[in-house]
Nucleic acid binder design. Structure first.
Lengths: 201, 201
DNA sequence: ACCTGAACACCGTTCAAGT
DNA sequence: ACCTGAACACCGTTCAAGT
């Protein structure tokens, strides 16, 4: 993007990350190459290697920024609720679930990168930290709901991991376009009801 | 693998698919290149193009074989149960869920390919057909459980898609190694209990 | 009809060299 | 310390040519 006059870029690292986040949602992860990113920031094909050990590290930096925003989005919804009762605890947890899916569906390529099987997040300490922050926020939300009687009598861990599975799975099925052609996706609230509403309603 | 004496291979298409399925679980999707596959079957780099339009079509053929096995695994568990009652209906559905996860965790790279965001399954009609077969089996299972009172009062579609989300998500979280380092995955049955067991148990 | 060989435009990555 | 240029070993894909 930038045409550069000086020999040194100035802040190539930041520029690469910014350009990467941009291109990610425009073109998808498959199109995201080191060389193209270098070209877009007006720099030679191997200049990125002064700032990142390899492509995986650059991807890790993008994922880290993703996890930062993601953790903010998921924890923001958890603040409001005290321990007032079952309805409030479930409402708060439901809000977190909603925030999770809204983020994933608004940033599908970034979400995919964050949870990619290639383990980019292992390249970045801050990934681990931010991912843990988001996860703990879910744990807290579930624990509060359970303390008020929701899914009573089950261990905390399986309930948290089941809820996370459902969120992760729905994010993937929708944003990867995996539903059979004839299937109309339900409203988000109807989908959430399966987890959070009494079945007799 | 094969050293060939004749100019024509004989059944290159089958050989490529077989070799592909082998390499997939050995090396993962990232390592699966057209050229390497051609080399492994003892054929020139572009011989595959006589049998597949492009790499996506070859991947589609692998995914198709995956969906065939997958649909078999998931439907096999659905046969046994008549409409004897709630416990039997839930047991049957739970069996399908178990079969789903056992398949996904036994063939992680194949499962990933089948549900990859790159839409390989769109290249193959048989993918769509077999995927639909597996999906309908889930729909039937959920409908039978609902007819017996499970998740009563909710629409069929959201319940099916919620269950599928949870299965798809758990398969991904486990096989892509996405759990935070400190988190011990629960037993499969404990995880299934969150969906299928009364919370007061 | 099926396969080979050479070529093209891309990759990630490395190494010597420039400022 | 940061960047360039040329090179290497890979890709997917195409096109002319061989059997």
């Amino acid at each position: 993007m930038n045409v550069r006059q000086t020999y040194h870029h100035g802040d190539l690292r930041t520029a690469l990350v910014a350009e990467g986040l941009l291109k990610l949602e425009q073109a998808g992860e498959g199109e995201l190459s080191l060389r193209a990113l270098a070209k877009a920031t007006g720099v030679s094909p191997n200049a990125p290697y002064r700032h990142f050990a390899d492509k995986g590290s650059l991807m890790g930096a993008l994922a880290a920024e993703g996890f930062r925003r993601f953790a903010d989005a998921v924890t923001a919804r958890a603040e409001g609720a005290g321990s007032a009762g079952l309805a409030e605890a479930i409402d708060a947890l439901r809000g977190q679930a909603r925030a999770y899916l809204v983020f994933a569906l608004a940033n599908p390529a970034l979400y995919r990168l964050m949870f990619s099987p290639y383990g980019y997040s292992l390249h970045s300490e801050s990934c681990q930290f931010e991912a843990e922050r988001a996860f703990q926020s879910l744990v807290t939300g579930v624990a509060r709901a359970q303390a008020n009687g929701w899914k009573h009598g089950q261990d905390l861990a399986p309930v948290v991991l089941f809820l996370w599975s459902a969120l992760h799975g729905w994010a993937g099925l929708l944003s990867d376009n995996l539903l059979p052609p004839a299937v109309q996706p339900p409203e988000l609230e109807a989908w959430l009801n399966v987890m959070f509403q009494e079945s007799s309603g």
